[in-house]
Design a protein around this nucleic acid. Structure first.
Lengths: 126, 126
DNA sequence: TTTTAATATAACCATATAGTTATGGAACGT
DNA sequence: ACGTTCCATAACTATATGGTTATATTAAAA
């Protein structure tokens, strides 16, 4: 079985984390969060050649982090953040290790306990 | 000002994402989640030489993802997940893009609105 | 039709990465 | 004292990565 349908098509954590490990690419992602953009637009903030940006876009595309379409002679990119969700899912396995001080840890453990008991409910705490 | 104290000392997203981009290193992290371990223990599950594992450990250490200490002639590693928190913080900027279908997006936007009003609550529809 | 704008692709280069084998040092067991 | 265990480090290799310039392609614009 190949993990049908759903949101993600394979989502390769290697490719995703690797794509996110570059500041230029994270910058591109940030830019795309405010709307689709053409290669030229994306290249403009960086002191880098256009082919370099095209390469970065290819990396992002292979990681599934952007989609691309053609509009006239321009290639528009749009953010596709599903792989980020997968990354976060992986990372959150280790949430319990995020806290250093013990009282914070207590708080988290309390939260986790609550989540278990109360998976599909609505809670209006304060 | 250099961002004093707190949980993180610099947390370099480049190094963190880069460290996480390798399956061996993610495997090491998974192993460390169940307890501190020596280099030999960490190497055992992988078909790879000991020096290779030592290199991976160095990468993880530079990313701040593990700490190391000496016990007799063994070098123990322990998970330090604070950088993961930073990674998640960065990723969650894009939470709104994680959903593809519009009704799901509606759900999220509703959640975000609720969160604003009510920071310490949980909500889960069904 | 000719030119220009937007982008991809190829060829190239330097550095980084991920592995290897070989070797050496520190601490333990005998 | 001697060998063994645990590990780091050095030296090397192959491939990947991130950039460049040069060139080709495609559609708009003149």
């Amino acid at each position: 079985m190949e993990r049908v349908g759903y949101t993600n098509e394979q989502v390769n954590l290697d490719a995703v984390f690797s794509a996110l490990a570059d500041p230029t690419r994270r910058g591109i992602i940030a830019r795309l969060a405010s709307g689709d953009a053409a290669v030229g637009d994306l290249a403009e903030p960086f002191e880098m050649s256009q082919p370099a940006i095209s390469k970065h876009l290819k990396v992002l595309e292979k990681a599934g982090l952007i989609g691309r379409r053609i509009d006239k002679q321009r290639r528009l990119s749009s953010l596709k953040a599903e792989p980020m969700k997968e990354a976060v899912n992986w990372l959150e396995q280790y949430k319990e290790f995020w806290l250093t001080s013990f009282d914070q840890l207590d708080v988290l453990l309390e939260e986790l306990k609550t989540e278990e008991v109360n998976l599909a409910s609505q809670k209006k705490g304060e």
